[in-house]
């Protein structure tokens, strides 16, 4: 049984798949988006007694529906209304990736930003102040991560669990989304 659905969104090559695999392990299934030839990956994981379904959205640079992938990602966020969007962003190309983040935030969906590939950003000598960034984005959680080395993912799991917990408490009657 699925208690909550969360969506993974991000630019192509931002490391979304790595995060997806790390979260769901072997519990994933691959299909197609209804009526589309684009691959749809879903998976599950349990945390603190919650069953959480993860949907991996196609990698896109924007949500402006210029392409099939963008259309799919946008429709899912706006119409299927996942409880939470996990926005995986490439820290080494922050400016390009944050454009999508702004569009996701504009939909009004609760969002967590995972700043992935912090090692690459470090190699370029970039220092990113995640605290400041969180403030700049209105206080949403910003996690720094190196998904390929499994860094920052525990923090992500914890934040998802906290969120789900809070959501459960806010809506004691229901809980299924």
């Amino acid at each position: 049984m699925t208690d909550f659905t969360i969506a993974l969104a991000g630019n192509p090559n931002a490391g979304k798949s790595t995060v997806f695999n790390a979260l769901t392990g072997s519990r994933q299934y691959v299909g197609n988006w209804p009526g589309k030839t684009v691959e749809k990956k879903e998976g599950n994981f349990k945390y603190n007694g919650f069953n959480i379904k993860v949907v991996d959205l196609p990698g896109t640079y924007s949500l402006s529906a210029y392409s099939l992938e963008e259309q799919i990602a946008r429709d899912f966020i706006v119409k299927e209304k996942p409880a939470l969007v996990v926005n995986v962003a490439d820290a080494a190309n922050l400016e390009r990736n944050l454009y999508l983040t702004m569009q996701i935030l504009e939909t009004g969906t609760p969002t967590v930003v995972v700043l992935n590939m912090m090692d690459m950003a470090g190699h370029r000598g970039f220092q990113i102040d995640t605290q400041k960034m969180s403030e700049g984005l209105g206080g949403i959680p910003v996690i720094s991560a190196i998904a390929s080395r499994n860094q920052g993912l525990d923090e992500l799991r914890q934040i998802i669990a906290d969120f789900v917990q809070a959501k459960q408490e806010a809506q004691p009657a229901g809980g299924i989304l």
Partner: peptide
């Protein structure tokens, strides 16, 4: 909507 003091969807928009 906060948990442990974290805001998830404060209505931050591009103004």
């Amino acid at each position: 909507m906060t948990a442990a003091g974290i805001v998830f969807n404060h209505p931050i928009y591009v103004e």
